[in-house]
Design a protein around this nucleic acid. Structure first.
Length: 803
RNA sequence: GGGAGAUUAGCUCAGUUGGUAGAGUACCUGCCUUACAAGCAGAGGGUCAUAGGUUCGAGCCCUAUAUCUCCCACCA
């Protein structure tokens, strides 16, 4: 017997411990069942988790449970992305110090320590939400084993010619003082001024107007461009121009990228103010002039402005130009600048020696990969393709930082050639370890590579890192392709893209077959939730604790796939009601099944109808979950469930209570139906609300089915041939019930009020007659008359209660 | 500038092969019905953004338009 009230706090904890202790969700390496491998997103350990993460993980969770219920051998690993800049930034903020202020080793130790604390918090939340990933073992992107895999990947791609080192322009963050990748850029609107400056023509008292938003870069101007079609300014090509204030001269060149309409139609070029400068530098082989130091100060080029931060210098230069009457006018504008997603600082372009993975020469291959993968929802494919089409930088994987996977590389002190570590020695830390061989030039002394790898250079290997926990094969493709890569849409251009790159380059294979892309949870005002801003409505820990894991999961599972949803606790009410109803309905139904053993019986009409309806539901339920339509699957089974409660149970409860009146076989038929349909529903609900379904299952069905848990008990498939005519005719019986209820409601009568008779006009009287006993009961009718014709229900005389 | 999505009841949103507009919630009217008042029954409430088109038939397909959100590009 189930308790009168369901105590979620007690039960949820109980089952979480039970699942954990009994390894209910363990992946079976020796199983012959079809494998379903999930490339679980390792959360970035850089702050506290929010409802967005929780909802996205719930979706993954539900899919994992679904496949387990289908009898598949589900590989659902668990890990943390705890290396790299995100973590460093988190730690820097926390200790209020820049990494460069500490000794390298000390800083790394603090990072390790802080991530461990956060990881404990993540772990507790995963467990208390009932996640069925393997909680007993997890990978970490900073562990030595991961470093080994990551370094091996580096060596392999270098050997295959995908990785190169070059002194080339790369994106630079002056705040984090490191190179970054195109995928780490974020747009930001900034108030700025468009400054129209006088560039005098050498030897003449004439000037050309040049407009710029970056006057502080005047010291780095290398030339001025006009459009080759620009007849008005064509004469300038023969002239030299004098850079305002700084006074040096630069040539005028022509390039079709210059827009004649923008600004004054004449543009100054520095190396490097933006992307176009980068292209011009290459195309016209321009001199490289560095205006900024790596921490965002002006270099000696800026003369008296040397040492000033970029923005301060801009102000100072503008003042100077005003004084010298070189500034014609200023326009206030709002323009978009690219900023670093980790700190919000506008990025600059710097020329430094960096390691790159070539993606630009494989665009087509990468594009085609996007076409071959199954995206759910489908429109997310466009985002990937759009990203690949617009790639303009190779993937810079070196970071001038500290807490990350080191490059397995040294440089010869004499000739400067890189020396690579031997695979068998991995992982290596070039700062501590030394190469075992001499350089080709005969020199035996080396400088270590001090850069570390971009965190994505490692997390793009999650299929290998996670499967290594089972295969112990390291960088290996025996688990590839995984069945599913799930993540939110912000990661398409980052994690998804990079994982595809690595898998194609290493193995020539796609890393997975399917992607499931979740939307964002936004705060109630529509803004994005973030780990640093606290604009959510409480921490996930509190929400789960106050509302139960099942209700929280129910909420998350109702989000349409790929769509952003505003968070609102109000939406939790549905889940609370649902859980309560499921408990009460199960309690009621099971109270009739205490000594029941299921056996075949000739079914009553409405019982047969419900079973047909179940079969119909089952088919579409499986279809929805197989295609990751979680919310549709849930809403369908839920609709069936409420219908079961309000209509079917009402129809048969008298039969269940009174076998002596309705007949033993008739009662048995209802029991048979209740037994199977409730079991089937619990199993279907189990991926969504795992705790309450387990509690109900364990209190009754587990013994009969002899299963350790509902979650590995398999769905209840009653066959897929559905008799559509039975479905329709059964609905007509419900229409009769509905008509009687309406009559009573309109006449303000209690539903149990009895009536003398009802007269049913229908073309299905033969069918309805077979359900007469149930119908009489629920309608409170003493007699039923039948007529052939178009559907109509007439209610006879009301029998008033006799006291 | 390129792309994706949204626009359906007062509110939040479903609606996946084109076939009489749905749910929850709110409001209203009833009902203590041998599970559930965190419940049950019933009622009202919609030119499915706008304008055209295809079709016997369009919320759904096509073409424009409007408003909003997001991604990308531009960012002299």
């Amino acid at each position: 017997m189930l308790d009168k009230k369901y105590n979620f706090a007690e039960k949820e904890k109980k089952w979480q411990d039970y699942w954990f202790e009994n390894d209910v969700y363990k992946f079976d390496e020796n199983s012959n069942a079809p494998k379903f491998a999930i490339d679980t997103p390792p959360p970035t350990v850089n702050g506290h988790i929010h409802m967005g993460h929780l909802s996205s993980y719930t979706h993954i969770e539900t899919i994992a449970r679904h496949h387990r219920m289908k009898g598949e051998n589900v590989y659902f690993p668990f890990g943390f992305d705890d290396n790299g800049l995100p973590t460093e930034r988190y730690v820097e903020k926390k200790i209020k110090k820049h990494a460069s202020e500490l000794e390298r080793q000390k800083f790394i130790e603090i990072c390790l320590d802080e991530t461990r604390k956060l990881e404990d918090e993540f772990f507790d939340l995963y467990k208390s939400t009932g996640f069925s990933c393997n909680l007993k073992e997890h990978y970490s992107s900073i562990s030595l084993n991961t470093q080994k895999i990551s370094q091996k990947s580096f060596l392999d791609l270098y050997k295959k010619g995908y990785i190169y080192q070059d002194k080339a322009p790369s994106l630079w963050c002056t705040e984090c003082q490191t190179a970054c990748a195109q995928s780490e850029l974020e747009d930001m609107d900034v108030e700025s001024t468009f400054n129209y400056l006088k560039f005098f023509i050498k030897g003449k008292n004439e000037y050309v107007t040049v407009a710029t938003t970056r006057p502080e870069m005047l010291c780095g101007v290398v030339c001025v461009f006009i459009n080759p079609e620009d007849k008005k300014n064509a004469h300038l090509l023969k002239e030299k121009l004098i850079v305002p204030h700084f006074g040096f001269e630069v040539p005028v060149l022509a390039d079709e990228l210059v827009s004649m309409e923008k600004g004054s139609g004449v543009v100054m070029c520095c190396t490097f103010g933006d992307n176009v400068d980068k292209e011009w530098q290459r195309k016209h082989n321009l001199e490289i002039k560095e205006c900024f130091t790596s921490n965002g100060r002006m270099t000696a080029l800026a003369k008296e402005f040397e040492g000033l931060p970029i923005l301060a210098c801009r102000k100072a230069v503008i003042e100077k130009l005003k004084e010298e009457d070189l500034l014609i006018k200023q326009e206030n504008i709002t323009h978009t600048v690219s900023t670093h997603d980790r700190c919000g600082t506008p990025v600059e372009i710097e020329v430094k020696k960096q390691w790159f993975i070539d993606v630009l020469s494989h665009k087509q291959e990468l594009y085609d990969a996007g076409l071959k993968l199954n995206w759910h929802p489908q429109n997310m494919r466009a985002r990937y393709l759009n990203w690949v089409e617009n790639l303009s930088w190779n993937w810079c994987i070196s970071r001038q930082r500290y807490y990350g996977v080191p490059f397995p590389v040294w440089y010869c002190k004499k000739c400067g050639k890189p020396i690579f570590a031997d695979e068998k020695d991995l992982p290596v830390d070039p700062l501590k370890d030394k190469p075992h061989k001499k350089c080709e030039c005969g020199c035996g002394e080396f400088e270590p590579e001090t850069d570390v790898m971009d965190t994505w250079a490692t997390s793009s290997l999650t299929p290998q890192i996670s499967s290594d926990m089972v295969t112990h094969k390291g960088l290996d493709d025996s688990f590839v392709p995984f069945n599913l890569r799930p993540n939110a849409h912000d990661n398409i251009r980052v994690w998804d893209f990079y994982t595809i790159v690595k898998s194609l380059y290493h193995f020539g294979k796609l890393p997975w077959t399917d992607l499931m892309i979740s939307g964002y949870v936004t705060s109630s005002d529509g803004s994005k939730l973030s780990k640093s801003k606290s604009n959510g409505s409480g921490s996930p820990q509190e929400i789960v604790k106050n509302n139960s894991a099942d209700v929280t999961r129910y909420w998350a599972n109702n989000m349409a796939l790929g769509k952003d949803t505003a968070f609102s606790l109000f939406e939790f009410d549905n889940g609370k009601k649902f859980v309560n109803k499921l408990w009460n309905a199960s309690k009621f139904v099971l109270s009739f099944l205490e000594d029941y053993t299921p056996k075949e019986v000739k079914l009553e009409t409405m019982d047969a109808w419900l079973l047909e309806k179940y079969k119909n539901l089952y088919k579409s339920f499986i279809k929805h979950l197989d295609t990751y339509e979680i919310s549709l699957a849930l809403s369908e089974v839920e609709r069936f469930f409420w219908d079961f409660c309000d209509n079917y149970v009402e129809l048969v409860k008298r039969r269940l209570y009174n076998p002596n009146i309705f007949g033993a076989r008739e009662c048995e038929s209802a029991k048979y139906t209740c037994y199977h349909v409730l079991l089937g529903m619990l199993k279907m609900f189990s991926p969504f609300v795992p705790h309450i379904t387990e509690e109900i299952y364990q209190s009754y069905y587990a013994k009969i089915e002899n299963k350790i848990s509902i979650h590995v008990s398999g769905y209840l498939d009653l066959g897929d041939k559905v008799d559509k005519s039975v479905l329709d005719k059964g609905e007509e019986v419900l229409d009769i019930v509905s008509a009687v209820r309406q009559f009573k409601s309109e006449n303000k009568l209690s539903l149990k009020t009895e009536v003398e008779d009802i007269t049913i006009t229908s073309q299905n009287c033969d069918f309805i007659k077979k359900a007469e006993a149930d119908l009489k009961g629920v309608a409170g009718a003493r007699k039923i008359n039948y007529k052939d014709g178009d559907f109509k229900v007439e209610i006879g005389k009301v029998i008033l209660e006799q006291n």
